[in-house]
Design a binder for these strands. Structure first.
Lengths: 224, 224
DNA sequence: TCAAAATTAACAGTAATACTATTATATTTG
DNA sequence: CAAATATAATAGTATTACTGTTAATTTTGA
């Protein structure tokens, strides 16, 4: 995987940006330091002005790449899900056993992420924290339906669909494959969040993982 | 239940507000129209200025009740979970069969809400939409840990704990009772949201309900 | 019932946000 | 090397999220 990825570019829906940030040095810094700054101060307190001064550039130059900070969040989270999707597809494609394939897929979408050193300008661990803390804000808006129509969530939806298909492959009669797939992905983010802030309402900690919980939940649900 | 509730006041942690909105006419209107306005324009576009002009009052008068709009959201969602908790406790307390008790509890926290006509100043249906669309924003902030320490989420956590206890009562050996309980509640909100905006990644629709999905999931998981 | 206390309305003001627009300078490309 | 493009610098605007002050109104309790 490691060497394969170095030649791959994660494709983000191009309507999300005005100018492709991967196409210039400034664009790369917007992504690189954008991730770091959002991770540090949180999305709510993040502004293009702060990012500009951090990268020694100007607020208005950043506006040439992204219409607003919400679009930047959509870019970052789309990239994240594209990266997860790639890893999941790669890790599962050669597994013939349907059960093992699904288990591996769940592992890939629920596990703790590690740095991908083939991609130098993106800190995936920080980005994972952003997804855990901020992803909901990308769709919990009055404009969801438009954003969805524009295709801003295709990658995420495709990832959910892939898991749904693996669930159906294992048990074609299971009545809630899409809901289970979306629950695994969203629920995993939520359990990671609870583990860090609300330990009393989760079992996840250093030894119990969201992966363990969702694997158990899935297998029992569809094999029962 | 209907007549019982009319004499009950849902207790919201008092650190959330500066002055108890239930203690005055203006306070009641802040709650009543606050719900309507947030429901209409969304929490992000909601301001005290808009609410003030809507209720024929002044921005700064609202600041006497709530420090900021985030606190108002915490108040509304705490009230909502307190209301759900009350209904759940009431609906389950006389059920002896552990399995039936848990199923009923899941029903109460996942079902579509209906107006409670004993409470005139709160539109629970609109409030339910607010919880679905905005609840995450109440805790996905850099200040979660402080807010949690101040007790702003006690009601929600208590509700999750009640369901965890019912899960454990049914199967004391089930290894993920807290995670399952929190997944039922959070996941149900999420499925309701998907049903309205992302039909392709949920099975929920007019006939299939989040209730059906989570009941199946829970029973299979803990009885397997 | 009258005075004090509390509440609310009205108004003014501030720092920050989320932009847009313009111009000048630097860099890239054909 | 000229033209095109990208970026930096600056200025400006409407709105937000407040705080503070004063005046009017309502509540209360002696």
């Amino acid at each position: 995987m490691i060497n394969l990825l170095s030649n791959l570019k994660i494709q983000v829906p191009d309507k999300i940006y005005i100018k492709d940030p991967e196409s210039s040095k400034l664009g790369m810094r917007i992504i690189e330091d954008g991730i770091k700054l959002i991770d540090e101060v949180g999305f709510d307190d993040f502004t293009f002005k702060k990012l500009g001064s951090r990268i020694g550039s100007n607020e208005s130059s950043i506006y040439r790449y992204f219409e607003n900070k919400h679009k930047l969040l959509l870019y970052l989270t789309s990239w994240y899900w594209g990266w997860i999707e790639y890893q999941m597809v790669f890790a599962t494609h050669s597994i013939e056993d349907k059960r093992q394939k699904l288990i591996r897929a769940i592992e890939m979408v629920t596990r703790e992420v590690e740095r991908d050193l083939t991609i130098t300008h993106i800190d995936e661990v920080a980005l994972n924290r952003i997804v855990i803390n901020e992803y909901s804000k990308s769709y919990l808006t009055k404009e969801v339906d438009n954003a969805n129509k524009e295709g801003y969530f295709v990658i995420y939806k495709r990832l959910v669909s892939r898991i749904r298909d693996m669930i159906l492959a294992l048990n074609p009669k299971y009545p809630f494959p899409s809901s289970l797939a979306s629950t695994i992905i969203e629920g995993s983010l939520h359990q990671h969040f609870l583990k860090d802030h609300f330990q009393s309402i989760t079992d996840c900690n250093k030894t119990v993982t969201p992966m363990g919980f969702f694997t158990d939940l899935t297998i029992k649900s569809i094999e029962a």
